[in-house]
Amino acid sequence: MRRLGLILVPYLWLLALFLVPFVIVFKISLSDLAMAIPPYTPNLDLTEGWAGLVSFFRELDFENYVWLTEDALYWKAYLSSLKIALISTALTLLVGYPIAYGMARAPEEWRPMLLMLVILPFWTSFLIRVYAWMGILAKEGVLNQFLLWTGLISEPLIILNTNLAVYIGIVYTYLPFMILPIYASLERMDESLLEAAEDLGCSRLSAFWLITAPLSKQGVIAGSFLVFIPTIGEFVIPSLLGGSKTLMIGKVLWDEFFSNRDWPVASAVAVILLLILIIPIILFQRNEQKQREADG
C-alpha cells in the first residue's frame, strides 16, 4: 500500500503535467485555426455524447502538417536549426577538447579548482551569459574597440546579429557540457599507456591519435549530444545574438505562438521538432548505456 502511494504521487504528477499536455499539443496540431476562444476548432463537447466524440474526431486532420511542408519557411527553419546545431557542436568540441585535456593533465591538486571554474558559469544565469556577448560583439562593442585600437582592423566588424554571433553564443554557453564528459573520460585514462607507446617509438602526436583519442571517444560522443540536442530547439541565443537572417525553429515556434497567435501551426511545429529530436536522443541513450556496461 505504501509502495503504491510512493509510486503514484510522482507518476500522477508527471502524467498530468507532462504527458497530458503533449496529447493536447498533438490534438491541437490536428485542429484548425479559428477566431474564437480558444482560437482553434473543434472542441470536444462531452455533453453531446457519442455523436459529439465522432464529429470531433472527424474534424481533426493533418492539414497543418501539409501546410508546414508547403511553406518554405518551416522546412528551411528545421534545416537551418540542424545546420547551426551541427556546426556549433563541432566548434564546441574544438574549443572544449583542449581545455578538458589540459585539465586532465594538470597537477592533481589543481583539478578540483579547475573543475569548479568550469562548473561555476553553469550556475550563473544563462540569459546573462548570452547578454554579456551583446555588449562585446556590437558594432561599437568592446571587441571592435579593442581591435580598432590595436590597428588590426580599420573598419568595425559586423558580428552581432549574424550567424557568427549565434555560434559564439552557443559555444560559450554550452562549453561546460562538452568539457565535463571529456574530462571525465580523460581523467580515468591510464597514463602509463602513453609512456609505453612512447617507449615503443610512437611520436607524441601518434600516441595521442592511437591511444588518447579512442579512449576519450565516449566522452566526446556524450558531450556532443549534450550540446547538439538542446541547441536544435534553442530560442534565447538566436533571438538575442542572431539577426533577421538567422532562422531557428525554436524562434519560429515562439513567433508563431506569440505574434501570429496560430496555435494549431505552433503545435504542429512542436510535434515535428520532437520527432526530429527522437533520433539523436535514442542514439545518446544507447551511448550512455554502452558506457555503463563498459564500466561494469
Binding site: 503535467l17 499536455p21 503533449f22 530547439g233 515556434l253 505562438f257 512542436a270
Partner: peptide, 11 residues
C-alpha cells in the same frame, strides 16, 4: 526543448 515544454503546459 523549453519551447515545447512551455507551449504544452500553457495549452
Amino acid at each position: 526543448p523549453e519551447v515545447i515544454t512551455g507551449l504544452s503546459l500553457l495549452l
